[in-house]
Structure formats: C-alpha cells, structure tokens
Amino acid sequence: MTVTFGPDHIVFAGYEFPWASVHPHGVLPASAVRDASTQVGPPEIRTVSGETLFLSWDDSAGLAGFCRRHGISVAGRLDVWGNLFEPFLDTSFSAAHIAATDARLHAVGLSQSSIDSIRARLTPLMRAYNFDSMLWDWTHLGLYDLLRALNGTLVHPSLPATLGDPFEVYRWAMEIADYGRAKAS
C-alpha cells in the first residue's frame, strides 16, 4: 500500500482491504478527510463518512504536513477496537484494569451487552489471528488487525467467512471505530 500526497488530495495505490472506498486504487480529496492520527500506529485517516483508512508508518510526516496545509485536525480519540480487543492480547489484566477498559467503552456509548456481543462475535477470528498464528501480540490489537484478519492474514481463509458478508462486517467495524470520535485516547 502506498500513498501520494497531492496538492488537494491523497492517492492510494494497492490499498489492501477490498471493502474500502479506496481499494485497490483511489483518490481521497482533502475535503473528505475529517481528521487523522499520526502518532499511533499505523497512521489513520478518518473520512467525513466515518471510514478509517490506514497508511504506512513511512507516511506519518507526509500525512501530518497534508493535514496542516488543509486545516485538518490531527486528533486523538479513544481506540475503541484497541479496548475491545484487550482480552485477545497475550497478557493478563487486573480486575481494576478490565473495569477501567469497560468504563471507557461505556463512556463512548457502548453498553456492556454490546461490548460482550462484539467480543463474542469476533473471538474465534481474533484468537486465531493472535494465538493460533503464533503472533502472540501482547501490546495492542486494533481495527487494523481486525481488517488484516478479515483479509485472511494469519487466519485460515474460511474463518472470516463465518462472520457474514465482508462488506457488511467492514461497515460494522467502521461504525464501531467511530464511537471514539469525540474522545481523546
């Protein structure tokens, strides 16, 4: 995946997620960018429509400059998927930490029932992605990891199909990611 920063747009080439608006090649006008994150990884663009698009680490400085030139906010927000996926990390958390994570998710509008339902739906996929694959990530899993798993990275190709229509799952994942919009991470 590569991007080129034009005077008033970003050109995506070889975008790896087939459900994205810019797959495999696309142009995103500056006016379609709501905000971005350049300090967490990988760098992200959030579109006006609520889609999160990823860039490579090498594009962080270019993204920051593009945002400055166009008055686009480089904002922190709660990493909803990072919080949802804590149970799938190769580590353990105290009861207080788990309660604090759930409180952050409640603060952005997710009920405990929703949290539990989302985690249950994705347990087979994320366990396969992090544990069965022997990735053993113990620091962070987020939306990017979910999309990689849905794309068949590190999981058996039949596993993502159990979640339903991949375009619908992608849309659902973007909606959940956007719960963090108004919150700083």
Rank of each mutant, 00 (worst) to 15 (best):
V3H: 05
G6S: 08
D8H: 15
G14F: 06
F17C: 06
V22M: 03
V22L: 04
S37P: 00
Q39N: 12
Q39E: 14
G41F: 05
P43Q: 08
R46E: 13
T47W: 02
E51C: 00
T52I: 11
T52L: 05
L55C: 11
W57Y: 14
D58F: 08
G62D: 12
A64D: 07
C67A: 03
C67I: 02
C67L: 02
R69A: 12
G71A: 02
I72M: 01
I72W: 00
G76Q: 09
R77G: 11
P87L: 00
L89I: 11
T91L: 02
F93D: 10
S94K: 01
A96G: 07
D102H: 06
L105C: 00
L105V: 00
L105D: 00
H106N: 08
A107F: 10
A107L: 06
I115W: 02
D116R: 14
S117I: 10
A120G: 09
T123R: 10
M126R: 03
R127A: 11
A128W: 07
D132H: 10
M134K: 06
T139H: 15
H140S: 15
L143E: 03
L146S: 09
L146I: 09
A149C: 08
H156I: 11
S158P: 01
P166A: 07
W172P: 04
R181S: 10
A182F: 14
A182S: 10
A184C: 04
